[in-house]
Design a binder for these strands. Structure first.
Lengths: 219, 219, 219, 219
DNA sequence: CATGAATGAGCCTTCATTCAT
DNA sequence: CATGAATGAAGGCTCATTCAT
């Protein structure tokens, strides 16, 4: 019974990596199986289906991110700090496992409506975190009432893109773009986090409110 | 002889749509051909290759976006207005043809380094626009010196995600999320643009500088 | 686990026949699969590739012929009898499986250098048999020193052509060429063998040496 | 009218080369067209068909060889010298245009009965040359009555194989087989001709007859 | 006649999936 | 449970051939 669970875990893990790298259509069941150290037929025995496997990976990752963000959204009384926490937690989740960022993207890129109810629900959970933080800030008078979807897109989009552009930025760095323009393409994610936090805070700051409680990174 | 060009156009157009919807691996050459009103063999006669077709689509779309952004980056003397223009132009480009947003994403999602030198160059052109605008603002003292990569990720990521999340937001709207929370998931892109512009401006604003020149439209 | 080997055998067998009949380019993988009683995909599972399949067939047949000829080349002390054995063994190999003759021809006809090192090695083995026999005859003083390549071409070329011209000769026979000229187009291969043996012996005979040890056929 | 003929010539020439190199199935009509400097459609206009093109090439080459051999078969009173002429003429034909050797082989290798009546007739013409020379020698008492098919196979087979094995022999030479065994893989065809002539003469010589009239090459 | 473009048929290959052992 | 083998259904690509211009 435990071994069985172990196998499932390995399969999901491998699948996440492969799906992230190749997309749904591009992923080969055989590669996933090999990466998980199982036989192809074994994989089918354990998960039944490429589509189901994909869904399960989605759900797992989305719900993991959702759980973390929910914790972050409840981490403090101060809306600004909550926002910081949201950013920080998301960055951590992606840094820890870049595949996560790609998986979110793949799902988005598939366009159309998400076919899996479960996945959709997890995405909603994630959105609700942003939404909650924003509206709590509005209620305490420190945030302007902005459409939380905008904030969400900004939060998720910026970080996902930052993670995914890693290889390109690396290449840019190798090409000497850094020295040329006095910027560092390979700046650590903590810097990005700090920037994003600050920007969101100031972007959301209510007209009269003076920003307090230092933003940012202490990674 | 015009017909030949017309066919190529139709093929590229169809390919953009299909690649955007299905990704590279998921796209079926036959679907593209059918959508373009050509025979599969005819498609190969005109473009030679699925990979080449993909690259051509990439280059076309990326360079179109690059051209528009370059124009935007040179549209004004005022850095803040330039930034607004960047946002506005990108939003227009995506709204006009949502496939463009997905195509950018697909390329990013493929992870790894981009294999096509030409595509890479177009992406660099796009980045350079952001970079130019930021550093011009820094030189005129109105912007804080921030890593332009951060700004770029924020700009592109937010808008791409906004476009792509359309269907999901639509669904959210259908589920009544709007009335429930007093927000409109289907807010027009102009609102998102305004929000993003404002946020970037304030996020980049140099400490002492007082923002002048009204931020974007709030249609 | 025996079944697996059995399948491979059947595939190679079928492939030999089809390649012999149609050449490499003309052979259809599907025909081979059907002839072997496997699914096309099954064929790929077992051999991986049309080219690999072809090479494997080549190697198998060439090495079989090589092995037999090596045995023949060592079958006696007398160079003349060795030469006879060479001819006889080759004729047997071809008669037993005419596809072999065609396969050798196809490989030759492909012109250019053989791309497979392994196949090349087998062909060299075969040549070495002729070469050995000739030079042993020279050393014992019964053969004139002639370029063994010439002898080899004569040996292989004559027999291959005889086998392959079967159908044409049959047609000639049907058209009454036999009665017309008092010759039999369908003479058995044993007669051809006898002729070839005799000719090679006399052709190679050292000036002073008197031929001993009856040549010929006892098939 | 003359230009038209010129085009046809170029097409046939190119086709011969390509068919020789790739076989019937392996040859691409487009390659032939390009090599002939015509448009693909133009080729069809001029010859109508891949199969017809192939046949025409066959007929042309076979009949050219046939014509030369007929001349050779009538070149002298002495059967031995006629035989020499046959060998010499064939060698010349092949040396002049190695494609000829491959084309003969391809046709043979296709196995089965030749489908074109015309091609078959040309092959018969060629055979008849050998047959005539042999039987004339028998009638004048200098040749043993041997099945002319055997002689023919020997004559054609040896020379075709010699020509076609050129690349392999070249490789053998490059690998140092020459120095190793004191033989020259790249011996000129004239040597092969001499060997073959001598062998056939002695092989056919009637028991009592003393060979007269020097064999061989003066090429 | 020459040419660019089109196309149906077919080829090699791969993939997700299943099943007997 | 694990595995080697099998397979139907594509999928990408090519080819001989035709046609309008």
């Amino acid at each position: 019974m435990e071994a069985g669970i172990g196998v499932r875990r390995r399969i999901l893990e491998a699948a996440a990596e492969v799906f992230a790298r190749e997309g749904f259509a591009g992923a080969r069941v055989e590669h996933i199986a090999k990466a998980a150290g199982v036989n192809k037929a074994g994989l089918y025995y354990h998960v039944g289906n490429k589509a189901r496997l994909f869904e399960e990976v989605m759900v797992e990752h989305f719900s993991e991110v959702a759980a973390r963000m929910e914790r972050a959204a409840a981490s403090s009384e101060d809306p600004g700090q909550r926002l910081d926490a949201l950013v920080r937690v998301l960055a951590e989740a992606f840094e820890e496992r870049p595949a996560r960022a790609r998986i979110m993207l793949i799902e988005l890129a598939r366009g159309g409506v998400i076919d899996s109810e479960t996945v959709m629900r997890q995405m909603a959970r994630i959105f609700r975190c942003t939404s909650t933080v924003v509206s709590s800030g509005v209620q305490s008078g420190v945030f302007t009432p902005e459409n939380p979807f905008f904030v969400h897109m900004c939060l998720i989009g910026s970080l996902v893109l930052f993670i995914l552009s890693g290889p390109q930025r690396e290449r840019a760095a190798a090409m000497g773009l850094g020295r040329e323009f006095g910027i560092d393409p390979m700046a650590p994610i903590a810097d990005m986090t700090a920037f994003l936090s600050g920007m969101l805070r100031r972007g959301l700051a209510a007209p009269g409110a003076h920003s307090h409680g230092g933003g940012g990174h202490e990674g």
